[in-house]
Computed example of a mutant assay.
Amino acid sequence: MSAVEHAWLPKATCDDSCVRAGGDRPDRPALATLRAARRIASALVLLPLVPFLAVPLPGRSRVQRLYCRMFLRCLGVRITVSGGPIRNLRGVLVVSGHISWVDIFTIGAVLPGAFVARADLVDWPAVGLAARIMKVIPIDRASLRRLPLVVGAVADRLRAGQIVVAFPEGTTWCGLAYGPFRPAMFQAAVDAARPVQPLRLTYHHRDGQPSTVTAFVGDDTLWQSLSRTVRARLTVVDVEVASLELPGDDRRELAARCEMAVRGPAIQRYRHQPALSA
């Protein structure tokens, strides 16, 4: 269904111009192609190991983090972690901005958990297999009536002591611009009386300039996003761990606190659309 029929659907204003704005510096085509072929070949070697991540063995969380970090390294993506310590707590809702399918592996390398993700994600090559292993909670963005069921499923998992990861923007943005945090998913933390861990994901090039090569926006296909990522010289993603937020009893107030923790003082600068009640 179209966004015209459902005005409440989150819709980013990002397009190809955003991706070009934070693209990689031009490189010799032959060198970029060789780099891409080597990285894709390395990633394909790791794919057969994905099913082993579901084996319930001691230390599985550590293995999942290591696997995600290795997979990103194969793609030419390095991770740095800054901010506060990562607390070993059960039943935490993890939230961050959403830029790319790469976010799944980035957060998986730091705080692996079950992801709330678009329902068709499980059908994607490679990413879909990882999503099933991580017990993704599917959400149909075109069906507002099913949203309470998803929120209830997230709350149940939080009560059971699981870590759940959600992207409250509801869609992907390029990383140079951002959307508002929708409060709906925060209701799960309120209902389960469990804390929220905000994470700030920042992608940049080796020289520190903002990067959009991993972005998955507009008319992008998965292959186009992957191709930009593996052809780039190096992409660095910094995961900044903000302070835990207690749930309180107001999902909108909780969403606002977490958005401020993720965006900081730049929150008003990057808002390109008004927040909706969902």
Rank of each mutant, 00 (worst) to 15 (best):
R233K: 12
W8Y: 13
A242M: 06
C18R: 01
G113Y: 00
E253I: 06
H272S: 07
K11S: 13
P274W: 00
V45M: 05
R141M: 05
R228V: 08
V94N: 01
R145T: 13
A117R: 00
S100F: 04
R20E: 14
A131I: 01
V63S: 11
F115E: 01
S227A: 15
F105R: 00
Q187D: 14
P125Y: 02
V136D: 03
P180G: 11
Q273F: 10
P85L: 06
A114F: 00
E169C: 09
G83M: 08
A193S: 14
T80V: 11
L111Y: 09
I139Q: 01
V77Q: 02
P183H: 07
P210Y: 14
L72N: 07
R271V: 15
G208R: 11
S2L: 10
I40A: 11
F216C: 04
G91L: 04
R146N: 10
L57F: 13
A109P: 02
V241G: 07
S42T: 11
I267L: 13
Q209S: 13
F186V: 08
M70E: 14
V95Q: 00
A215E: 02
R233V: 11
A189E: 03
P148F: 07
A166Y: 02
Y270L: 15
S82L: 07
P112L: 01
R78I: 09
G152K: 06
A142P: 04
W124P: 00
D103N: 04
R200Q: 13
V94Y: 03
R231D: 10
A256S: 13
H6Q: 15
D140G: 05
H205E: 12
P210D: 13
L57Y: 06
L149C: 08
V116H: 02
W124T: 01
L44I: 10
R257I: 01
R182L: 07
I79Y: 09
